[in-house]
């Protein structure tokens, strides 16, 4: 079990959010979308240039850029 940022996850990996390390508008937007500690998520894939990343959480699909993913600390559950 290791805590990394969402950017470092590979497609197919699942993880649980540990902390969102940003405030302000971005922090609020991420929280509004349901990215709060304890939320399980799965990386679905990445766009052709490796950015943005698509994840699945709470039963829906969300996309965000890598430099936003940097603010999301996750605990990796399993590799696949």
């Amino acid at each position: 079990m290791s805590v990394v940022t969402l950017r470092e996850l590979k497609p197919g990996q699942t993880a649980v959010v540990v902390k969102v390390t940003t405030g302000g508008e971005l922090g609020r937007r991420l929280r509004d979308m349901g990215l709060v500690p304890g939320t399980p998520l799965k990386v679905i894939g990445r766009a052709p240039l490796k950015d943005p990343v698509e994840i699945k959480l709470r039963g829906y699909n969300l996309t965000l850029r890598n430099n936003e993913a940097d603010h999301i600390m996750v605990e990796v559950e399993q590799a696949s």
């Binding site: 508008e25 937007r29 699909n61 969300l62 996309t63 850029r65 936003e68």
Partner: peptide, 10 residues
């Protein structure tokens, strides 16, 4: 640049 946090609808 401001964030790109977007829902991808089914």
């Amino acid at each position: 640049q401001s964030p790109f946090v977007m829902e991808l609808p089914p």
